[in-house]
């Protein structure tokens, strides 16, 4: 990576960062009173009415979630400058199963990765001798446990649910990769993959300074927030709309605890659906509020984010169909187990 700016603007960047952090804190702190002022005084809406509360919910939640998103994505952006697919590849090459699966899943969280790079990344891993199962642990963890999902869960359900999501996501990525490794499915990888000759991966990199890393943080915020804000707003709008109007136990009969088949059904529905975390989590929060069980909702969410049709179509270039189906089967089963487990525990 090359630095984005010269050293001369370094101290300016730090001042800007400090200023923004202060503004962030002030806005976040005064958001609730400001929302109330806007709804009750400026709009003059009648307290307690469904419409009023729906509007209040929307005005409060959208900036709150966006603020959290911007702050955390910023720090994740900085954290990611310390990692790269090349370093991850080198760290995983020739690792033994299990230890390798654990490392791959953990690195999947922090390595900057975009699903459009899935193929070169897969080829690079195979070429370096990273075992297939370990590569899968990475490919499962990377999209599923992403910062947007974790922040939104934190913002809407609190830290316990967010932490549980990360932990179960890790367990699924580790076990599913381990199982795929044990099944010895190398024969279902397209033959040409093993003929890949890879050039030298080292890039004549300048060492990144602290301000370079900060710049990357800003760039990441711009990129991610710019991409997901519309989904966040739409998702929360749906949530606000359902807030007062849909009966509390509306989803209980469909996705409640007593309906055992709702877990596999949610996974089946979730796989072909494709959405990023930003779009699906506000919807999931509505489902839960309206009586859906936590395990069922979590399974639905993981299926939507972790197993996506576009990603499989991309991977179809390098993997034969039986391997893709095994991949979906193993991960899908893992997600179902999590769903059942959470329904039983909570």
């Amino acid at each position: 990576m090359t630095p984005l700016t010269g050293p001369q603007s370094g101290s300016k960047k730090l001042w800007l960062l400090g200023g923004l952090l202060v503004v962030w804190f002030l806005v976040y702190h005064y958001l609730q009173p400001f929302t109330n002022f806007l709804t009750d005084t400026v709009f003059g809406l009648e307290k307690g009415k469904h419409l009023t509360e729906a509007i209040r919910f929307f005005i409060f939640e959208v900036p709150k979630v966006m603020l959290l998103l911007a702050l955390i994505v910023f720090f994740v952006g900085i954290l990611r400058t310390f990692f790269s697919p090349e370093k991850t590849r080198a760290a995983l090459a020739g690792k033994r199963t299990f230890t390798g699966n654990v490392m791959a899943a953990l690195l999947g969280i922090v390595t900057p990765f975009c699903s459009c790079s899935a193929i070169p990344l897969f080829l690079g891993f195979v070429e370096a001798g990273v075992p297939l199962g370990i590569t899968f642990s990475f490919l499962i963890a990377a999209p599923m446990i992403n910062e947007v999902a974790v922040i939104l869960l934190f913002g809407m359900f609190g830290w316990k649910v967010a932490l549980l999501y990360v932990l179960t996501g890790l367990v699924i990525a580790i076990t599913a990769g381990w199982v795929i490794g044990k099944l010895k499915l190398e024969k279902w990888v397209e033959d040409w993959v093993y003929k890949t000759k890879m050039g030298d991966t080292s890039l004549s990199e300048k060492k990144l300074s602290f301000t370079d890393r900060i710049s990357f943080g800003f760039v990441t915020v711009k990129e991610i927030v710019g991409k997901v804000w519309i989904y966040v707003a739409l998702g929360i709008a749906v949530g606000a709309g359902a807030h007062g109007y849909v009966p509390e136990d509306f989803m209980a009969a469909l996705m409640g605890k007593s309906v055992w088949y709702s877990v596999p059904l949610s996974v089946l529905i979730g796989v072909p659906l494709y959405s990023n975390a930003a779009g699906i989590i506000p919807i999931v929060s509505v489902l839960i509020e309206k009586g859906a069980a936590l395990g069922t909702s979590l399974a639905f969410m993981m299926a939507v984010i972790g197993l996506s049709l576009p990603e499989m179509i991309i991977l179809k270039k390098v993997l034969k169909l039986p391997l893709i189906l095994t991949f979906v089967g193993v991960v899908g089963s893992g997600i179902m187990i999590v769903g059942f487990l959470f329904n039983a525990l909570f």
Partner: peptide, 26 residues
């Protein structure tokens, strides 16, 4: 993709100037 790999690139897009990779992944 095979040609891309020969440049040692795992994250696209990448910019190559006179045979040398000068930027990748963004």
């Amino acid at each position: 993709i095979m040609e891309i790999m020969t440049f040692g690139v795992m994250t696209t897009p990448a910019l190559v100037v006179d045979g040398k990779v000068v930027l990748k992944g963004r």
